[in-house]
């Protein structure tokens, strides 16, 4: 029995040691490395058939799946300018929205909030002996916490760029079809200093997007 106890003790200690030996991938990523860029396109779209485009002059803010308004801060302005430059470098001509552009570009900041709870419901049971109610002059009393302890909120965001086909809106049964979408997610995705790099990354992985 003594042998088994020692063996079990060794195994538990071993397991604890081993569990601590995982190299955490998130601790080994820079903010730039944390970001991912996803692009999707309509395989039936003929990108060379479009000549002109226009970009919305502000950025839509979508908060928790609801439209929260339009904004044009430093980050937004930088993205709008960068997208315009990328499109022009691809051979498309920037025109005002009154000039009946072939393509429209919507830019959005999508922000989702999630809430969770750390369940410390047994907190007082564990520490009841230490925080003895006797100390407060209530010997024999227990503790009761009527609320959950440790509620947290996390916001995750993404930059989304949508390219809409205005040229074929009527032919598409009066629909503004999205023919290309670019999405950037990760750490500091809404930082102005990263805006140009994010737009460039989305366009550079979309070589088909050209006049």
């Amino acid at each position: 029995m003594k042998k088994i106890s020692k063996a079990v003790m060794g195994a538990i200690l071993g397991a604890l040691l081993l569990g601590s030996c995982k190299k955490d991938p998130l601790n080994n990523l820079t903010n730039d490395e944390s970001r991912i860029y996803i692009t999707n396109y309509d395989s039936t779209a003929k990108f060379s058939s479009y000549n002109t485009f226009s970009v919305n002059d502000s950025v839509d803010v979508i908060q928790d799946n609801q439209f929260a308004g339009r904004e044009r801060g430093n980050f937004d302005s930088t993205v709008i300018t960068a997208v315009s430059q990328q499109m022009q470098q691809r051979g498309y001509q920037l025109v005002s929205k009154e000039s009946s552009p072939n393509l429209a570009i919507n830019i959005s900041r999508v922000i989702n909030t999630s809430t969770g709870i750390f369940d410390y419901s047994n907190y007082w049971d564990y520490y009841g002996g230490y925080w003895d109610p006797f100390y407060w002059g209530y010997p024999g009393y227990g503790y009761y916490a009527p609320y959950a302890i440790g509620i947290y909120t996390i916001q995750t965001g993404g930059l989304e760029i949508d390219l809409l086909d205005l040229q074929n809106a009527k032919a598409n049964n009066n629909k503004l079809t999205v023919i290309w979408t670019g999405l950037a997610r990760g750490e500091q995705v809404f930082n102005s200093a990263n805006a140009n790099a994010e737009v460039m990354a989305l366009f550079s992985q979309s070589p088909y997007l050209k006049k």
Partner: peptide, 15 residues
Amino acid sequence: PNGAGSDISAVLTNS
């Protein structure tokens, strides 16, 4: 490549 018409640019880590 992430299926038809979709691409993902990322630093990939296998743990």
